[in-house]
Nucleic acid binder design. Structure first.
Lengths: 341, 341
DNA sequence: GTTCAGTACTGAACCGGTTTAGACCCAACG
DNA sequence: CGTTGGGTCTAAACCGGTTCAGTACTGAAC
């Protein structure tokens, strides 16, 4: 049943009456092959159903024809985060047309993140990696640079980096949310942020504080691990305060939805008693009651852009940073004027 | 900076004063090497920081040391589905300890699912694949079998298959939900199902109808594409009926949450006016208001089991089907007694 | 008519491992 | 003392491509 003896380049060469080398030249479109010989070789190859063995190719040219993505977050948080699936879809949009393949590795309980990278590279399984969820003073930059492999970073690192960065100004998204709430009349807004160790969390927090200050708004920030549970906890803490905020800007939709649940459970009406904004604009958000006002980022486009940049970097081009279009705020029913005291 | 000249087996052999072959024997723990020679070779290898080139190994032994997962759903649906990330985490739990790697491929607009498999296998990039989201009369079984590669299926296919299946009885989960609702007094329950083309959707629907019949319950089923939007649409249709059901069993949490939104938007109180159950038990569910009653399946455990089974199949073992523990129903606040007419 | 350049092609080395056939040594046995 | 046999090790083939040095032939230039 399984016919595992695929034709090799030698079979094609024999059948075409030429040397292996010439077949290789013909296939790779290199000079030094006459037009009709090339055509003959190619048609014989097609007829025999030959395609070069990626493994042999990989060994002789020293490339893996694959790139890696290491996911550092805990699986539970990943599962709740719509970013990765969309992002991966975007990466695939690009890879699938260029014969590349995506190797996914997750840092698991039994294996630290660093070891995951080291393993991927030590085996030369990938030609490049995508560094996501950048942290402050991220050690992976030096690690990967030392490992001698191409990479792109998602976001601009806060340390010297030899790698192309592909970034989106998520601060702009937070700013839009704050301005929207300020326009509605809110003067006391809280921000439920991601982990402070993560760079994008910091950016969003800084953007939040700047935007709040610019509008003369009382602001407070509480940081979380991005999980719904932590979002709920943070919300409870905020609503328990002496003078609770009249609006909360969450740094992801998952936490915003959990926060909405907490508020409703306390008998609060959203948006009459409390306004809420999310971040990611997951599909689910528009079907909630009330529908969630959220910052929409193009995760899929980001994935495609990162993949493209990585392929360029693998090819040896110099670093050239890329900035994607700013996110937009999708205003729905979860935001409104603050309660009149 | 980049020291790209890793030591090769020849370097180790020279340094140890033996032949390449013997180093290979020593490394792979094969007989024919004296104990002290083996030790000497191994310690020299360690000292030189040598590890065998996966590419060379791959070429000579004819294995890729990688397995593939092709995701056939549209990226938007994947993004909303917590199953894949958890499942992948489980796969990684297993692969990371056995030096395997997960190659992820997504069927993209520019590339049909079949071509994705074909490409993965034609390049011999993987030693095996995981077939998820089994469809009725799934053509991928024959395709992959014809391609001559190992595989495991997630769920038991409805056609002849040479592959090990790793399955979970999701029908049991649906039955638990129906029984729970029947116990509460419901006599008119609807099921918002997944696509009819998908086998697990069919199983759940069949289980629903059987369980309803067993309890003498009026039942109806509407099928969807698994998206929140379609879940909302289905819910609207059900609630618009002459005599709407008093409870709805959704086949994933995402649709259940969207359905909850639809009900609340209409001014219905859940669970007083309408009971709702989900499927997946996402973390978010317990933070909603009301907290979602849902069927909990161990996606991560499933991933680990599938990975283990696949590695066994790749090693050449005979097919041996595997059935995972039944899912459980987590009762929360979204289900209650039906309204008294 | 030789030199020269250029094109088309071959043969062999190479990537870095695995695997097999066989050489060599020493002990035991008839 | 010659043979057999088991254990240790080497040399070389092999996996299936790429690449480079070099050869043979062609046509143009001097």
């Amino acid at each position: 049943m399984t016919n595992d003896t695929r034709p090799t380049i030698a079979d094609v060469a024999r059948r075409a009456g030429v040397s292996k080398g010439l077949v290789s030249f013909a296939l790779n479109g290199r000079a030094g092959v006459s037009a009709d010989t090339r055509e003959r070789i190619l048609s014989i190859a097609a007829e025999m159903g030959w395609s070069p063995s990626l493994r042999a190719r990989s060994l002789s040219v020293g490339r893996a024809f694959a790139c890696g993505l290491v996911i550092g977050r805990s699986p539970d948080v990943i599962a709740a985060d719509p970013f990765f699936p969309s992002f991966i879809a975007g990466v695939e949009d690009e890879f699938s047309v260029s014969g590349q393949v995506l190797v996914l590795a997750a840092a698991t309980p039994g294996r630290q993140e660093d070891d995951t990278y080291r393993g991927l590279v030590a085996d030369r399984r990938v030609d490049g990696v995508i560094l996501s969820d950048l942290r402050a003073g991220d050690p992976r930059i030096d690690l990967v640079a030392g490992l001698g492999i191409a990479a792109v970073t998602l976001g601009v690192p806060d340390v010297d980096s030899p790698f192309t960065s592909v970034s989106i100004d998520d601060g702009a998204g937070i700013r839009l949310a704050v301005d929207h709430l300020a326009d509605l009349g809110h003067t006391d807004i809280a921000h439920v942020a991601g982990p402070t160790a993560m760079l994008h969390g910091r950016h969003r927090t800084a953007a939040f504080e700047r935007a709040a200050a610019a509008r003369g708004i009382r602001s407070r920030v509480v940081s979380t691990d991005f999980s719904a549970a932590d979002g709920a906890r943070a919300t409870t803490g905020l609503l328990d305060a002496e003078t609770p905020p009249t609006a909360i800007v969450y740094s992801n939709d998952n936490m915003a939805i959990a926060g909405l649940g907490v508020a409703q459970r306390r008998g609060l009406n959203v948006p009459r008693d409390l306004s809420i904004t999310g971040f990611d604009d997951v599909e689910l958000g528009r079907h909630l009651h009330p529908a969630l006002t959220s910052v929409s980022t193009d995760a899929r486009g980001w994935g495609a852009a990162a993949a493209r940049a990585l392929l360029i970097a693998v090819a040896g081009a110099a670093r050239e940073d890329l900035r994607l279009p700013d996110p937009r705020l999708i205003v729905r029913a979860s935001t409104g004027a603050p309660p009149t005291t």
